[in-house]
Amino acid sequence: MGLLHSLFKQMLSSMRDLAPVVIVFSLFQLLVIRQPLPPHVGVAELIIGLISVLLGLTLFVKGLEIGLFPVGENLAHAFARKASVFWLILFAFSLGFGTTIAEPALTAVAGKAGVVMSDAALIAPELEAQRQFAITLRIVVALSVGSAVVLGVLRILRGWPLHYLIIAGYALVLVLTGFAPDEIVGIAYDSGGVTTSTITVPLVAALGVGLATAIKGRNPMLDGFGLIAFASVMPIIFVLVFGLIGFGGGA
């Protein structure tokens, strides 16, 4: 019964997340647009979809809490405390990669990016080509988050100052933007924002906090945060490079 009770509580919190969207949408429909929805949008479908989102998010977040996070956090602490640098780095990379592939917000953005790229005739118009692009993009972003977590771990181990690295990352983004094809820039910048979401943040932060607690003289909050900050700059760099390699230089 404990599980059902906590599922119910989780559902209330998912409802609270979804409510502002539904309220703003309905207010705009009723007060501003004051017209029936276009024929290709079914109200029944929207409602079914919203209920799926509500149930899906509830089960997903609760499931992560009881299924994945406890094991992942224990592991992160164990590696932070005793593992050799080699295993620690390998674990950090795999953790960043694995969590990012599963991140639903990235799935959403990458899927749309595939459709848009194929509409713009940059990739083949088939569904298969769109899927291929979406998966490749997600793998590139996942590799970048893996590298970001590794860089963050090295930074904690060596005590490199955070803001210089971030500023260097920003500078690299700006330089690459000048060379990358224009069509990839928007996708690249947005992919930096979607990686720090439901799955990645708790597990990666656990690794950061675990490490910072294990090493003397480190501040758990500051160092845990460094990992997340890298995880939002590195994807931009990787996707810009991916655009450069895949689609040639900018116009």
């Binding site: 079914i48 799926s52 639903p104």
Partner: peptide, 12 residues
Amino acid sequence: GLALFLFGLETA
């Protein structure tokens, strides 16, 4: 949950 969410993503 993830499957339901991905379905709702497309439909809502």
